[in-house]
Nucleic acid binder design. Sequence first.
DNA 1: CGTCATTTTGAGGTATTTCAACGAAGGTGG
DNA 2: CCACCTTCGTTGAAATACCTCAAAATGACG
Lengths: 239, 239
Amino acid sequence: MKKPIPSDPDEMSSLRSVPFQYLADTERVLTDRQRQDLIRIGMRVRLPARMTIYREDSPAQWVFAITEGAVKCYRDLPSGKRAVGAFLFARDLFGLAENGRYVNCAQTLALTTMYRLPVKELAALLKHDADMQFKFLMKVTHELREAQRRAILISRRDAAGRLAMFVAHMSTRDCPSVNTRVVSLPMTRSDIAGFLGLSLESVSRAAAELDHRGLIKFEGRHLAKIVDAEGLARLVAAV
Amino acid sequence: MKKPIPSDPDEMSSLRSVPFQYLADTERVLTDRQRQDLIRIGMRVRLPARMTIYREDSPAQWVFAITEGAVKCYRDLPSGKRAVGAFLFARDLFGLAENGRYVNCAQTLALTTMYRLPVKELAALLKHDADMQFKFLMKVTHELREAQRRAILISRRDAAGRLAMFVAHMSTRDCPSVNTRVVSLPMTRSDIAGFLGLSLESVSRAAAELDHRGLIKFEGRHLAKIVDAEGLARLVAAV
DNA sequence: CGTCATTTTGAGGTATTTCAACGAAGGTGG
DNA sequence: CCACCTTCGTTGAAATACCTCAAAATGACG
């Protein structure tokens, strides 16, 4: 038995894009019960650095939730370049798929602990627990915002500005209120280049420039110290 | 009363990124009932071309679902450049917000009809209808994949290649199986430039090059005809 | 301590950006 | 219906920034 519909039914039969507002912690943080449910269907996995978690086009059976460590998602392009789609850390989810197959490769950057969640069972769980699903939805939405931010980052022409935005973003990753002065960069320069859409050499030169300008001091390969936070913020804002 | 948790509860208390597989139509298309529910809380709005729907940082009260027409989401950067985050069409959702405020501006490209859905009521509806929410989740996930694809597009160095990918993508937007030979481009060259991270002049030159190479014939400002589909595909694949 | 991968540094080539001016299109008002 | 005006688009030439190729230096790892 169908009620009259105030307008063409087909108009809203399918949806494409996405939007949403950011919510309070009560709407973001999982409850103990929800955590238990996830842990029940999942399996804890611990992998050393530089291990491939899955490859592009392979059957996507699992979704992964990082509890500790770092992961990169990348794709090897026909030209031989390697495009890094994202760096993932603790509390991040990954395993983006399409038509049942992963859309990119995932590899650990360091010793990483993660939960491996079977897609089927996770989907069933989410359909059953609308509250938890809403939290997932909020997370995806957040991720979408991040992707848009990155697109703006990439639109910059200057390599130094891109690297500055990258380091600034990494420094506020865990705790937006506290701008960490010391930023750990577990990925290689090559990975950063792939993420920023630059050549390895350009990243190296950009790092030298930021160092020379007294904004960021790079110590070793995996550590950056923000020297002039204000100057860095100025450069970052000069999009 | 809490059950024992097999591992550190805090590890999964919050999630960040997102993943998912693509599902069958039964999991994507809204039911009549769900359409009714959306129409009930929403309001039909019809706007002429070049109208601002909302501005950056303004309170995000609504989410919009396009039924017909075209919309662009953009941000004006401090440098004076305009970064276009996305083009939206029929069956797309938009109104991405953060902390209760829109993260970019939205403007109609042509005469557009849309449904205006109050965020609060939509959230309540989704929490109540896990099935519909799952469809929303799939859409956001799809949008996230699109954002990653765009990031790869932008990573290309050559303007002609970027424009080729853009046109090719627009041609498969509605129906992936049928590569439309005639592609409508309701946005301006400036908008395309903002979307591709190029200057307006580069887009113009790239269009001339694709035309000269016999791949795409641009007729007027808002129409592109794919002449050599195979050659275009070759250029698109040469990422 | 030696080997190998990663990173840095240098020089030249090539692409896009910028600046500037012209031409075309669309919308408005008479 | 036409003319005007504003916006958008095209084309040209010079400058800038990144990319590529190549080689040396640094650091990681066994």
